[in-house]
Simulated assay, not measured.
Amino acid sequence: MASSDLEDLCCHINTKISTIKKTLQLRNMGQEPSLKSVLCKIGHEMFLLSGLLNKMEIEVEHQEKLKNSLKEMQESIERDYNEAQHLRENIPPHLPKAIPKCTVGLTVKSEEQSKVAEPECVKKPTKEPKFIKEAPLITAQEFEGVPAYMRGRLTYDQINGVVQDLNKAVVSKYKILHQPMKSMSSAVRNLYHRFLEEETKDTKGDKLTTCLPHERRVTVNVTIKCCKDLGEFFVVEADIKDFTQLKVDKRFHSILNILRHCHRVREVRGARLVRYVIC
């Protein structure tokens, strides 16, 4: 056996002997009357210290849970902040606008009610703002839903740019149709007559916004919807060229396919014309 092993063994045995001696000394001290009170106090303090350590352990666990909760909250706030920052940096230039609803309800139940209602129709101003239907812009969600083969390299802004140009052409056209004949120049009058010639039985409407004639002693319950009674609002390629800077080319027709897919326009063909009707 090596000398280092003997030294380690001797050191271990001496340590055990020293521990036994200290234990015997402490046991003998506990039997002395003068030291019993001190040992009792030490025991009591040890008991209080143990309780304090237990409370501290519970508090540490509570603080650990609170720290984890705050960490999760911080991560959630950071995610929300990043999403809000992304939305702020990527606000779409075009936002959909609400479609105006024009519904007029007319109910005449007796001769007396028709007599009261008749002066109201007469008092209405002759120059009311005329309703012109416009196509709402494509939303980002609708754009994402367009098939990839149909969308190609077209962008969201390009599609909504065409929607705005179509609305511009529709508004320009129907402002002329609502204009009094006496105020028209010869060029505008020619456009007016062309617009009328382009109407078909599928696009014509009553174009009436005044009150209905009254029939006495007859009960009438009528609901008028603007788009139906005013006919279809449409433009042709000539209108697009006259009122906008839009080029009627292959890209334009590709965008029209997307607008038909998103139910913004539809086509009515006849008399060698393609009419782009606002849905």
Rank of each mutant, 00 (worst) to 15 (best):
T155F: 12
G30A: 14
E215D: 03
T203P: 01
T200L: 03
Q141N: 15
G145R: 15
E75A: 15
E232T: 01
A135W: 03
L48I: 06
L196M: 15
L70D: 01
K168N: 06
V162W: 00
R27A: 14
K228L: 10
P92Q: 09
E111W: 08
R151T: 02
R153P: 02
N28T: 04
N221K: 15
K168D: 11
M73K: 09
N167Y: 04
I17M: 14
L48N: 09
E75T: 11
C279I: 10
R266F: 12
R260W: 00
C262T: 13
N54E: 12
C10Q: 15
V104H: 04
L87Q: 10
M56N: 14
V218E: 11
L48P: 00
K71R: 06
N54Q: 14
K130M: 03
Q63I: 13
V104I: 08
S114R: 13
E32M: 11
I224R: 13
L66N: 06
L256T: 04
K16E: 04
E267H: 08
C227H: 10
T219R: 13
Q31E: 12
K101N: 11
S3N: 11
F143H: 15
L256I: 14
H12T: 14
V38I: 10
L52Q: 09
D80R: 09
L24H: 11
L137Q: 10
L35C: 14
A2S: 10
I42D: 01
K41H: 09
S76F: 05
E64A: 12
G231S: 08
L191V: 04
S183N: 08
D206N: 03
K207S: 06
I77Y: 03
R266L: 12
T139R: 03
V265R: 02
I132Y: 00
F243G: 07
E45P: 01
R153C: 04
K127A: 10
V170K: 00
E59G: 08
S186Q: 15
L166F: 07
G145E: 14
I132E: 00
C279S: 11
D229N: 07
S69K: 07
P213I: 03
L212E: 08
Q245W: 02
M150Y: 07
P92N: 11
L212R: 15
L246P: 02
L177E: 05
K101A: 12
I138S: 02
M56T: 13
D249H: 02
V116F: 08
I224W: 05
T19Y: 13
K109T: 03
F195Q: 01
S172G: 07
L196A: 02
I20T: 13
T223L: 11
K65F: 06
K204T: 06
R153S: 05
L208K: 10
C279E: 09
S4F: 11
I278F: 02
E32K: 11
M181R: 13
K133W: 14
L52G: 10
H253N: 09
E7P: 05
Q141L: 12
P93I: 04
L9V: 05
K201R: 13
D5A: 15
L53Y: 06
G270H: 00
I42H: 07
D242P: 04
R251F: 06
D239Y: 07
P180G: 03
L66C: 06
D229H: 04
Q74T: 05
V235E: 01
E237K: 10
T126E: 12
E267K: 15
V236K: 00
Y174E: 06
C121V: 09
E199H: 02
L95F: 14
N28C: 07
G270P: 02
E89W: 06
G205W: 01
C121Y: 07
L48E: 07
P180A: 10
V220H: 14
